[in-house]
């Protein structure tokens, strides 16, 4: 069994976990809390001697489950996106281009966030994180064909929106 280092194997996953948690909870603070909880839980499992083949997939699974738990506790919040991170000025582009990019990002992000949880999680893991269908199936605890169905529907919804 490979020895797992918190600093080298677990902590670097924080951004990936954050993106997944944010995609599910749609709230930055909740997502960060979930990332912290996930990192602690995964590390404890490692210390308890649990045999974890794929730390990343296991962490994503824990992160998703915690996010879903939180969503079931709280009311579903349809906040489109926390804007502060995209308010930083980009000096390489004109203000008009920046505004158009910002609006486009907001629109697509809102569209993706409006998809059912399974579809947006599957699309997030495939298109944003570049995971294989097998890994996504493992994280979401569904079959690979179900993963493909969810991604197909999510892409179709995005495509229809873009064609309008």
């Amino acid at each position: 069994m490979k020895e797992i280092s918190f600093r080298n194997d677990v902590l670097p996953l924080k951004d990936k976990l954050f993106r997944l948690a944010l995609r599910i909870t749609l709230n930055r603070e909740d997502a960060e809390d979930i990332v912290q909880e996930t990192l602690i839980r995964v590390w404890r499992e490692c210390q308890d001697g649990k045999d974890i083949d794929n730390v990343e997939a296991f962490s994503l699974t824990v992160c998703r489950n915690l996010s879903l738990d939180l969503n079931s506790k709280l009311e579903q919040r349809n906040v489109a996106f926390d804007e502060d991170i995209h308010d930083q000025p980009d000096t390489t582009r004109s203000p008009f281009e920046t505004m158009v990019d910002h609006e486009r990002f907001q629109m697509l992000n809102a569209l993706m966030n409006s998809l059912p949880e399974k579809q947006r999680t599957a699309m997030q893991l495939r298109d944003v994180e570049g995971r294989s269908y097998r890994e996504i199936a493992e994280v979401m605890q569904i079959s690979e064909s179900d993963v493909k169905v969810n991604i197909f529907r999510a892409r179709k919804a995005m495509r229809e929106k873009l064609q309008r």
Binding site: K14, D15, R19, E32, R104, F105, L108
Partner: peptide, 20 residues
């Protein structure tokens, strides 16, 4: 369709806050 793929690229740059 370009905006979809550039959106994905931007979404990949999302990260936790600085004081995390």
């Amino acid at each position: 369709y370009a905006s979809l793929f550039t959106f994905v690229k931007e979404a990949q740059e999302e990260h936790v806050s600085a004081d995390f």
